[in-house]
C-alpha cells in the first residue's frame, strides 16, 4: 500500500500549469481560459514563440502592465489589463470567434468541473442554483484544433473529476484531447483515457482508485516531473 496522500501530495496549480506549458508548440496560436489556465503563459518555455488570443478581440497580447499603467480599453477576456507585443492586432467579436470557430487556433486550454473518457467537458454550470454564465467556453471547445484541460484530479471532497460520463451540464461533447491533472497527464483517444504520465510517488492502482473511468496504458507511462519551487 502506497503512503501517497492524494489531497496533500498532489501538484499545485502552478505546477500543473508549468507542465501544460512544456507542450506549447513554437509558432502556435493559443487561447488560455480565464483564471487557472492563464497561468500557463507564465511558464512558456524560453525560445518558443506563442501568440495568445483573447476572445474580446486581441491577438498577440503580453503580460499585465504595472499597477497604475493600465489602459482599460486594453483588456483580456478576464477583464484584466494586458500589454501588447510587437505584431499584435485588434478585431471585432465576429472575427475573434471566426478565429475560434473556424479552426484557426492550435490550442485552447480550459478549466473543468468534470471530464468524461469520451472527451465530454463540463465546466460552465454546477446546476440549477445561482446565475448561469457561459462566455466563450462552448465556442472554444469546438473550434480549437486541440482542447486541453488543466484541473485537480479530484474535487475538494476527494471525488473523481475524470469520469466515465459527466453528471454536470455539458460544455461540449467529445471535445477534450488532453488532460493535465494534479496527479497525471492523460490523453483522450477513441473514447478512452490513455495514461501518458503520472507522479512517480503514486501507484497505478491508487491513481485508478481516484479516477472515475478505466485508465488505459499504451506503451510507457512516463514520470510526471515538475519543478518543486514554483
Amino acid at each position: 500500500m502506497s503512503d501517497f496522500n492524494v489531497m496533500e501530495d498532489k501538484l499545485a496549480n502552478a505546477q500543473i500549469a508549468w507542465r501544460a506549458a512544456q507542450d506549447l508548440s513554437d509558432g502556435s496560436y493559443v487561447n488560455l481560459g480565464i483564471g487557472f489556465p492563464e497561468m500557463i503563459a507564465k511558464f512558456q518555455p524560453v525560445g518558443r514563440d506563442v501568440t495568445y488570443h483573447t476572445e474580446n478581440g486581441v491577438l498577440g497580447f503580453g503580460k499585465a502592465p504595472d499597477v497604475g499603467q493600465e489602459d482599460w480599453d486594453l483588456i483580456n477576456a478576464g477583464k484584466r489589463a494586458v500589454t501588447l507585443k510587437a505584431g499584435a492586432s485588434f478585431f471585432h467579436h465576429a472575427d475573434s470567434f471566426s478565429m475560434v470557430r473556424g479552426g484557426h487556433l492550435d490550442l485552447a486550454v480550459l478549466g473543468a468541473y468534470q471530464v468524461a473518457q469520451n472527451g465530454d467537458l463540463a465546466n460552465w454550470s454546477v446546476g440549477a442554483k445561482g446565475v448561469p454564465a457561459v462566455g466563450g467556453a462552448m465556442d472554444l471547445v469546438h473550434g480549437a484544433k486541440n482542447v486541453a484541460v488543466v484541473t485537480d484530479h479530484v474535487t475538494k471532497k476527494g471525488e473523481p473529476k475524470l469520469l466515465d460520463a459527466c453528471t454536470l451540464p455539458l460544455t461540449g461533447i467529445g471535445c477534450v484531447t488532453r488532460v493535465y491533472t494534479s496527479l497525471a497527464v492523460i490523453d483522450i483517444v477513441d473514447g478512452q483515457f490513455v495514461l501518458r504520465e503520472k507522479l512517480a510517488q503514486i501507484s497505478l492502482d491508487q491513481l485508478q482508485s481516484v479516477t472515475g473511468a478505466t485508465l488505459h496504458i499504451d506503451g510507457t507511462v512516463g514520470d510526471l516531473i515538475v519543478p518543486e519551487d514554483i
Partner: peptide
C-alpha cells in the same frame, strides 16, 4: 454562448436569417 451571440448579431447585419454552428450541440443551451 459568446461566439454564437457575436455571429447571431453579425448574421442579422448581413441579412442572414439563420446559420449552423457546432457550438452548444448536445448541451442545455
Amino acid at each position: 454562448p459568446q461566439g454564437t451571440l457575436a455571429e447571431r448579431i453579425r448574421a442579422a447585419g448581413a441579412g442572414i436569417p439563420a446559420f449552423y454552428t457546432p457550438t452548444s450541440y448536445g448541451t442545455d443551451l
